[in-house]
């Protein structure tokens, strides 16, 4: 959605679901982001990467409107951070799914109750809850373990449950902050594959990682954040064939990633949108 404010200078695309417009973010004593400017299209799959403390989580926080820019503007699904009424934040959150490195499941509830909880508290009728829980559990391949408690699952399984919970309200955007941070490489890749499938369903997915291996094999758009600034924003040209084997994907992805890594950051910006 355009606003007058934006129309003079680098308008945010109409088809964008997320738009950052020259955003600064200042925590109490710490500048976290400077002049971050990018937009994300409907259905896009975006990887945020960069060293620890670069500002990846801060970007996701701004998208979720759990933080607000000190300068610039953030637009999420047509809602502007500067004009956001606090009372409408719950509405926005229902259109965004979240996944974290530490899963954040409720330990005392079964897997299906964990997922149902996300629907219950936003007022979905019980019959629909049961149907939706079944749907997402099947989607993440854990319907058979629906009655287990989180601690009776492996880390990868717990993360898939967290993803199922994030998806149960059918959000338009899925945000994942280092979703593979606690997982071994193979399990991590399985999670990324699951994110791909979710993205195939039309959901815009934004995830952060500092796992080099994942970045290398990721055949989609990658934004590198460094010191609170966008160091590069590259849309990989290599289409990733998701029917191909994992090894195959890794192999092909590696080529693209290496190619990108070899271009100087300034040159890379040209290949980019924004």
């Amino acid at each position: 959605m355009k606003t007058d404010k934006h129309s003079n200078d680098g308008p945010l695309e109409a088809r964008s679901v997320i738009g950052f417009y020259h955003v600064d973010l200042q925590y109490k004593d710490q500048k976290a982001l400077s002049n971050v400017h990018f937009s994300v299209d409907n259905g896009e799959f975006l990887c945020l990467t960069g060293p620890s403390g670069a500002g990846k989580s801060s970007i996701l926080r701004l998208i979720a409107m759990d933080a607000f820019p000190t300068k610039g503007e953030v637009m999420v699904r047509g809602m502007l951070a500067s004009k956001m009424n606090r009372r409408r934040i719950p509405q926005l959150r229902r259109e965004i799914g979240f996944v974290f490195q530490d899963f954040r499941l409720l330990a005392d509830r079964s897997v299906e109750d964990n997922i149902a909880f996300a629907q219950l508290v936003v007022g979905v009728p019980r019959a629909a809850i049961m149907k939706n829980v079944m749907r997402v559990l099947t989607q993440v391949g854990l319907y058979g373990k629906r009655q287990r408690k989180p601690h009776e699952l492996s880390g990868g399984e717990q993360q898939r449950i967290a993803i199922a919970r994030a998806m149960v309200n059918s959000p338009k955007i899925l945000l994942a902050d280092e979703p593979t941070g606690n997982l071994d490489p193979v399990t991590a890749q399985e999670i990324i594959d699951l994110l791909f499938r979710i993205n195939d369903g039309g959901t815009c997915v934004v995830f952060s990682t500092h796992d080099h291996q994942i970045v290398k094999t990721f055949g989609q758009r990658v934004i590198v954040i460094q010191d609170g600034r966008i160091a590069s924003d590259v849309k990989r040209r290599v289409p990733v064939d998701r029917t191909a084997s994992l090894a195959d994907q890794m192999y092909r992805g590696t080529d693209a990633a290496t190619a990108v890594d070899n271009i100087p950051a300034t040159a890379r910006q040209e290949t980019v949108h924004a």
């Binding site: 719950p90 959150r93 229902r94 508290v121 309200n169």
Partner: peptide, 17 residues
């Protein structure tokens, strides 16, 4: 605290919480 956090995350209103 964890439950409240998740409620906020998935879009429960403050009134409900």
């Amino acid at each position: 605290a964890r439950v409240i956090q998740i409620q906020k995350l998935v879009g429960a209103t403050n009134g409900f919480i």
